[in-house]
Design a binder for these strands. Structure first.
Length: 158
DNA sequence: GTATTGATCTTCT
DNA sequence: GAAGATCAATACA
C-alpha cells in the first residue's frame, strides 16, 4: 500500500522534467500518464515514479514509501533483511524490495508486471509537507503521506 | 538520538 | 568536473 509520495512537474526546478527538457533519462516522463518512470539515483539506487498528465508534458509522482502487504518473504530476500519497517520505507528501498529496475522504465502500470489495486478503504487523513533530499524549490509542500503510518520514510511535521 | 561519509552512474556545464 | 528526487555504516551525544 502506497503511504508516501512526492509530486514533480515541468514548472518545478527540482524535477528532472523542468521546462519540459527531454533527455535520454527522463524520456518516459513525456509519455501519456499511466506508465512508470524509473531512474538511477546517486549511481546506486533505482527510484520509481508514476507518470501523470498528457503526452509531451513532464509530470510524475515519486513513490517514496510502501506499507508491505504482499510477498513479504520475497521482499525480505531481495532486501536481505527482516525488519518490515525497513523493507519499503524509502524510494530506493521499495525498488529493491519490488525488484524494480530500468527494465521497468516506460512500462504501462495497467498490465504485468505491474498491477495496481485500490486500497480496501479510503485513507482517513493525508499529511502534507516539504519534499526530501532536494535543494531547489525545497519550500514547495508537494510531499504527501498517510497520517499515522509507521512506514513513511520520514516523519511529517505536525 | 543526530551527524557524517562512501558508494558510483547520468546529466549538464 | 560537479551535482544529484539515496542508503547504510560509522561515529559521536
Amino acid at each position: 500500500m502506497i503511504v508516501e509520495l512526492e509530486a514533480y512537474d515541468h514548472t518545478d526546478p527540482a524535477a528532472h522534467g523542468y521546462g519540459n527538457r527531454r533527455t535520454d533519462r527522463n524520456a518516459s516522463m513525456f509519455l501519456p500518464g499511466g506508465v512508470a518512470y524509473v531512474y538511477r539515483s546517486y549511481g546506486v539506487h533505482w527510484c520509481l515514479n508514476f507518470v501523470c498528465g498528457d503526452a509531451d508534458v513532464a509530470s510524475a509522482v515519486l513513490i517514496r514509501a510502501l506499507e508491505p502487504t504482499h510477498g513479504l518473504d520475497e521482499m525480505r530476500a531481495r532486501r536481505g533483511l527482516d525488519d518490515v519497517r525497513l523493507l519499503c520505507s524509502g524510494p530506493g528501498r521499495l525498488c529493491q524490495a519490488l525488484g524494480v529496475t530500468r527494465a521497468h522504465d516506460g512500462l504501462s502500470l495497467e498490465k504485468p508486471p505491474f498491477e495496481l489495486i485500490p486500497a480496501p478503504e479510503a485513507p482517513q487523513r493525508i499529511l502534507r509537507g516539504t519534499r526530501v533530499g532536494i535543494t531547489k524549490a525545497a519550500e514547495l509542500p508537494w510531499r504527501y503521506g498517510l497520517a499515522g503510518s509507521r512506514f513513511v520514510s520520514r516523519r511529517f511535521a505536525t
